[in-house]
Amino acid sequence: MLTLKHLNKRYADGTQALKNISVTFPSGMVGLLGPNGAGKSTLMRTIAGLQQPDSGNIQFADIDVLAKPQALLQQLGYLPQHFGVYPNMSCRALLEHIAVLKGLTKPARREQIESLLALTNLTKHAKKRVSTFSGGMRQRFGIAQALLGDPKLIIMDEPTAGLDPLERENLNNLLVSISQQRLLLLSTHIVEDIESLCQHVAIMHQGEFQQFADVGTLIAPLTQRVWQLDALPDELQDIIVLSKTFRHGHSVFRVFSEHAPCAQAQPVVATLQDAYFLSLHQAGGQHVAG
């Protein structure tokens, strides 16, 4: 559905934010994983037409995005990582404003804005100024505006930021329901969300795609090779430490190894997070507890 070919972007300070990215995203939800500075936001902003790549092509369905950026914007829903709001404008007025910019007719606007207000549970606050909203409410407003119209490509950069666990869960449900027949490009640091929501995942590091595949394919190489330990053995040969967490104040290590690294090691079910950390390790990136 969305094909990127040889996409490159270098900023004025010399940072190579995108390095020869070539990939095809199918419809459905696609998760974008990567550490800070991996290039996720640059990629999403480039796809959204907010900045121009130095070279490469972007094709969405039958649209050559770089040649006809306007055609893509007709089908785009976008929620940036950080956004502000106009002062002195109520939630409904601001949604109305964006709906007009998106080309919704008056009846369509009226219908969809009410529906989205209800969906994001902002109906009661529709007349209140968005500038006075809390972080969670403002994020819900952001989601509502991104869903205005009938976007075929939805880009959401950290949509769950600022949401409490229950809101996060409900947003995930919503995202799953709307991702039919659409491409929903989702960037988040919460790997669990991506694992549970996305059929496909792209792992980025230093402007490059380390991996892009469906979740099962990414996890498959780790099956029966992830072990959980309370403490690391003295000898770390042939072991890759994937993560170190704490449970009730005690450390818990997850390691990648072909064989049980020690007698206390318990085999555990591999997760996307394991695959992500392993990918970063292989790319020479951060090592959690090395």
Partner: peptide
């Protein structure tokens, strides 16, 4: 700031409308 205890409605369904 307006704090709200409301959350996203999981029971509601998103309905797209066409644009021009």
């Amino acid at each position: 700031e307006r704090e709200s205890t409301d959350v996203l409605q999981s029971s509601k369904v998103y309905k797209a409308v066409s644009t021009q």
